[in-house]
Design a protein around this nucleic acid. Sequence first.
DNA 1: CAATCTCGTTGACCTAAGTTAAGAAGTGAA
DNA 2: TTCACTTCTTAACTTAGGTCAACGAGATTG
Lengths: 190, 190
Amino acid sequence: MENTEIIDLLSKHIPISENLAQLILEYSQIKMLQKGAVILREGQMANECFFIINGCMKKYYLKDGEEKITKFYTEGEIITPSSYTNQEPSKYYVSTIEKTIVSYGNPESENAIYKNHPELESLTRKLGEKLMVNTTNEFDNWVNHNPEERYLQLVKERPDLIQRVAQYDLANYIGIRPESLSRIRKRLLK
Amino acid sequence: MENTEIIDLLSKHIPISENLAQLILEYSQIKMLQKGAVILREGQMANECFFIINGCMKKYYLKDGEEKITKFYTEGEIITPSSYTNQEPSKYYVSTIEKTIVSYGNPESENAIYKNHPELESLTRKLGEKLMVNTTNEFDNWVNHNPEERYLQLVKERPDLIQRVAQYDLANYIGIRPESLSRIRKRLLK
DNA sequence: CAATCTCGTTGACCTAAGTTAAGAAGTGAA
DNA sequence: TTCACTTCTTAACTTAGGTCAACGAGATTG
């Protein structure tokens, strides 16, 4: 039922052949996470990576008991915690902010796939390169803009987030307090 | 003359076998760049990537005629412009801030190497993964700290940059004006 | 040597975001 | 319906950084 949805979503990002679709369906495991579920904590080892079929998640640090959100993930995005790739305790948290349906993998199943289908390595590498460019762009974009500009950019490029994410989480992500975002919004209405 | 130095520097970051050292020396080309040389401009296609043997470079955007520095590179670091990997016009500039000696490569020589020595692909992938983790950490680090904290962190983790980079470039990198960095430094002397 | 430039510093004033506190609107539960 | 809780908004005040202008120390040049 959700399985074909995975292929639909994935194919929006990279070309998926019949064979590949078959393969993905064969290996995919799915689970449903309640709103607010914390799927990775600081200090933990991540032994799963996730593909969001439906829902929304956030990645955040805890600094003096305060959340610092650095990323939202939505449908079609992949969460590969750095703790998962380099086997070190995680420095950050990942949790859902809505009921979220994910497909997930672990190192064993991943290795099994690569062993049986080595042609996937290059696909992964390409996805990785794309991710790298995205991450760099995000960083540069952050550095080049002030909170108001970042908010405007969110409105333009991720209107979905404006709708589904609470304003205090948006403000946090933008790097300001909810009160300030409130003022910015007021200011923008002129 | 500088050739053995390349291996020394590289081996600080990843293990280099005898064979690999041989290979690198065989393919490496070296050039010397004057202080202030701009090696990549906005809008240009990058057809070279660089390895710094000696010297210092900066990566920056031009926004309303103002530089916005997002990265310094020093000895042992590799500059692979995103324009180089994905063949799109560059969005940023790269220039030297000192006389700089680099080893450089282009897609043709890179392909030649991979063709003759496919075992290097996995090495490159690992370097890439390390780079990805670094980039993400840098971003998260930026988001989690204010200018004063960023300056203190620079002092602690990149004292070399404090010494060799002009204060207005440091301030720019930290995300503030030179006057503000001056005040922060004064404040910190208590 | 004086004249010029570059770079860092300082001071006065301005502005956007932080802080604190209060209140309004919506939701859900008793 | 009332109460509690969450989320967003508003206001008053504080503060860190921006802006503008001036100055001083080194380095460079004529």
